[in-house]
Amino acid sequence: MKSQLKTGAGVILTAIMLFPIYWMINVSFTKDTDMRHDPPHLFPFNGTLEGYRAVLHQQMPYLGTSLLVGLGTVILTVALSAPAGYSLAKLRPRGGGALSFVLLMAQMIPGIIMAMGFYAIYLKLGVLNSAAGLVLADSTIAVPFGVLIFTAFMSGIPSELINAAEIDGAGTFRTFWSVVLPVSRNAVVTVSLFAFLWAWSDFVFATTLDGGGNQQPITLGIYHYIGNNNQQWNAIMATAVIASIPATLLLILAQRYVAAGVTAGAVKD
């Protein structure tokens, strides 16, 4: 096959794959009156911004909460996992291997079951329906991942660098803070981006732990929209488009990190 032909085939395949995303955008611009039109409007010509106006009027508090929860999760995740990664990678604690194993297994526990346990605990503590409670729960998705990423990254830091810092008289904390953390910037970025994305996307914890009250995230904003059955699909899809922005940014900004991580570990040669 000629290269151009392959490119053409690739473009078509990608278009098929991304059609649902196109459709989401298209519907977000479709007028209410055209929503059930037969045949459906395949292009958003003569569309409307009604959906986006509805987002502006009704979804801003949800978006604000999601932003807050996302940032909170990032801070908690990095604060917990960076020191642990350093320890596992460079300080060689006894039992570190077992801990890595526990972290791997922890990632396989279905979120829905964690959510049930959290619900029972939160109910007793009275922290249901709070952004802080959601941050804590969402961080469980990202912390094991964060530790493993930091461990992998920090194992690659030359020991000479750390030894040099110690010879200069820096203690373990000083070395970590002034030497290891600054050179681990890429790992910090990767962990932060994913922690944010997962917290932003979370639905399981949100619906079980934060289903009432006035601090609900955007995933529930969309869910209530669907549940209310208001048939305002342009508003639902407009919210979905807005909710997809962090993922899109991640793909553009951090694709390099994602790709590098994947190729490093997926194949042992």
Binding site: S159, N163, G261, V262
Partner: peptide, 25 residues
């Protein structure tokens, strides 16, 4: 989120083996 997390975890898990460079414990 799930698959993304894992892919990279797997990446991370592999080199998590003890660092080879000899250094003072």
């Amino acid at each position: 989120m799930t698959v993304a997390s894992d892919l990279i975890t797997r990446a991370a898990a592999a080199p998590a083996a003890p660092a080879r460079a000899p250094r003072r414990r």
